[in-house]
Design a protein around this nucleic acid. Sequence first.
DNA 1: AACGTGCCCTGAACGC
DNA 2: TGCGTTCAGGGCACGT
Length: 269
Amino acid sequence: MPELPEVEVSRQGISPYLENRQLVEVVARQRQLRWWVPDEVLAQLNQPILSVTRRAKYLLVQLPQGDIILHLGMSGHLKVLAADTPATKHDHIDLLLDSGMLLRLNDTRRFGAVLWQQKGEVHPLLASLGPEPLSDNFNLAHLTAAFAKRGSAAKLVLMDNHVVVGVGNIYANEALFKAGILPSKPAKAVTPPQLAKLLPVIKDTLAAAIKQGGTTLKDFSQADGKPGYFAQQLQVYGRGGQPCLTCGTVLSELRLGQRSTVFCPKCQS
DNA sequence: AACGTGCCCTGAACGC
DNA sequence: TGCGTTCAGGGCACGT
C-alpha cells in the first residue's frame, strides 16, 4: 500500500513527464472510486500542467484553473506510458499529454480518488489536515500538545491525520518500535523522553524511505510497481510471532482501530 | 471534542 | 477441485 514515501516517490517520478506539458485529453473508465470528479469537470481540463505537488498522500496536478487531486488509496499506482499502450484491468483514468505519453492510474481495490479543486480554493478533504511530517511544523511542541490531550492508544493518535499526515500503519508500527513506545499506551501517558525520540524517528524513517524509493525513479515509465523502500528491513510490521530483531523476545500482535499492530513487549513500554 | 465502529473494494490465502 | 470465509488497509461518516 502506498504510504507517504511511495506517494512522494511517485510524484518525483511523474513530475518530469508532466510539468510544462499540455493536458490534451482525459480518458475515464472506472468512475466508481472512493471519490470521483464530475465528467463536466474532466472535459475542461485541457490546460498546461504547471507542476505536480503533494499534500499528505494526495498528489496535486496543478493547472492554471485549479488542481487535479489524485489519491492512490491502498492499491493504486501511477505509470507514465506511451499514449497507445492498451489499458488493462483496473486502469481507471488516463491523462493524455501532448508529448505522446500518458499518466495512468491503476487501482485494484478502488480506495483511491480523483478530485478537483478550483484555483484559490482548498478541497474540504485537504482543509483540516495536520502538518507534513517532514516539515518544521511537525515539531516536538506540536507532537507533545497533540498527545497530551488524547487518552486513546498512541498508535491511533499517530495515525490521526489531524495530528500528522502520512504516517500509515506500517510506519506507525515501525516508528513506535524504534522509539520504544507501546502502541496501546495511552497517548497522554507517553513520556517526554519517549516523544523526543519518536519525533526524529518518524522524520528519519520517512526521509530514508523516500531516498531509497528514489532508486526506482529512472525506471518509472516501466511497469515497475514495486516501491523501492520496501527493500528496507521492517523491524516489526508483518513479523508477529517472530523474534524481536533487537532482543529475541517473541513479537506480540493485536488489533488497534481494526489495524494489525505488532510490537516487542520487552523493548517497548 | 473525543472516541469507537462500519464501510468501501479486490484478490490472495486459508479452511472444510 | 471448488466452494466459502477471512484478511489487508486509508480515511470518511456516523453514533455515542
